[in-house]
Design a protein around this nucleic acid. Structure first.
Lengths: 254, 254
DNA sequence: AATTCTAAGTGTTTCGATTACACTTTCGAA
DNA sequence: TTCGAAAGTGTAATCGAAACACTTAGAATT
């Protein structure tokens, strides 16, 4: 059986036992959202928005492809964007990852061995845009508020939970929140981001006092427009200042 | 060719493309050490203690085996110990992991395809003992001070560096230092552990003030014996108190 | 028995960060 | 012109971090 290669890259998978899954987070100034794909083909959908037919976006790894490159490729397919923030957070490889009957049935129906354990390298990514494809491989794609997702297909709920835990830890230590915001943002938007992701509420004055110490958060001579209240000042994150002034944390929690 | 199975477990590897590597750390009250294996068989050693023939301890994953179970198995083989602290820290899967000629030659000589990319799930483990086997699969095994290891076979130096970074981050946030100490230890030993692992020097009085706030660090009515100076009080880490009083950190570094 | 060596153990002050808390301002919309 | 809604601003109290030097207890030596 001949296999016509039409791209310049060889597209052979390294094997069927390893995949990369990508937990794509987005922020709409109100909630933290995650991009989910319906595993049922668009044509065949009967019962809309059943969470247990929703999955994270995953894919196999090609022969000459780095793990992170595979995650970036998934992202590019869904957003058309490159150079997106990506972070490897955990690898999942329990032999009993798939237990539910409907998951096994889906795998069998899609030509895979439901008892074959797959090792999945998990990445999460942070998007500052809500522009994504609405369809991927003939399947519906859409944003869901993380707080409302209670059940997903396969073990993807566990993967999402671990991604969220990793994101929170990271956010507590490094200024990655900016990856979820447009280049120019207000302090209230930034505060809301921290509140939503960490699940806490923060005092406005104390928050502003704290961020005013961060030199890499630069105030612009520019204000919000078209809002029905006092317009907020806009800020940018200056990566260069951050890289030059960042210091290691040595406040240990023994 | 028949293959006699003598254990009760099926010993088939899931495949040859995935492995688990285990970075085994130990602490001798003076230095942080790492357990390394000479990839050259004992019989064949000509030039002793060449770092570029030293490797971390890794292994394949069996069919019915969890990733962490595979790491625990490696540990058990080397120490005879179970329930060792284990932490998954990163998965390595670059297609160009092996570049050096001597590494490729070693793989070829050991019946493997030197150009076959292997995906390795990295765990680190913390040992409170220096008791380990001195031989593993016919190879020398020994402790080396982490600070003196500059070069390792394959990409194991990178893996060790990432493990060390992960260990430091973890140590800054959770009281895992106790895993590297015997059940009873002195405050000076604990301080030295933090200094060595984090690569800093700490003020004795401030350190003691800080740890005295940690309720799970329990002072015993017991002292060091046989030391040629004022004997230090012994302490234990009370895991139960820790679990019951631990609170999430919400001091974010924006 | 006295001396020496070595690490254990102990308190105070200064400084900076965290917390708690309420009113005025500026815009668009009605 | 008024109203609604979010932006923006300061102070006092408390807590933790950092800097810093001498005394004590035991083993080893004389």
């Amino acid at each position: 059986m001949s296999n016509q290669v039409i791209t310049t890259k060889p597209k052979a998978r390294i094997n069927d036992y390893v995949s990369v899954d990508c937990v794509i987070f987005g922020f709409d100034f109100t909630q933290l959202n995650v991009l989910l794909v319906d595993r049922v083909l668009k044509d065949e959908i009967t019962d809309k928005e059943k969470f247990n037919d929703l999955t994270l976006t995953g894919n196999h790894i090609y022969e000459d492809e780095d793990l992170e490159a595979a995650a970036a490729r998934i992202l590019f397919d869904l957003t058309g964007l490159k150079d997106i923030y990506l972070e490897q957070f955990q690898t999942f490889g329990s032999p009993q990852r798939i237990t539910r009957e409907n998951d096994k049935a889906w795998l069998a129906a899609n030509g895979r061995d439901p008892d074959q354990r797959i090792i999945t390298v998990g990445y999460y990514s942070l998007l500052a845009t809500d522009k994504v494809t609405l369809e991927w491989k003939g399947r519906n794609v859409s944003w869901f508020p993380v707080s409302e997702v209670k059940e997903l297909a396969f073990d993807h709920m566990e993967i999402l939970n671990e991604a969220l835990t990793a994101l929170r830890k990271k956010l507590l230590q490094e200024p990655i929140g900016f990856e979820l915001l447009p280049p120019k943002f207000t302090l209230s938007q930034l505060q809301r981001l921290y509140e939503v992701v960490l699940g806490v509420s923060l005092d406005k004055r104390n928050f502003r006092k704290k961020v005013s110490r961060m030199k890499y958060l630069v105030a612009l001579d520019e204000k919000q427009k078209g809002v029905a209240h006092k317009p907020a000042r806009l800020y940018v994150f200056d990566r260069e200042i951050y890289e030059n002034t960042r210091k290691e944390l040595f406040d240990f929690a023994i």
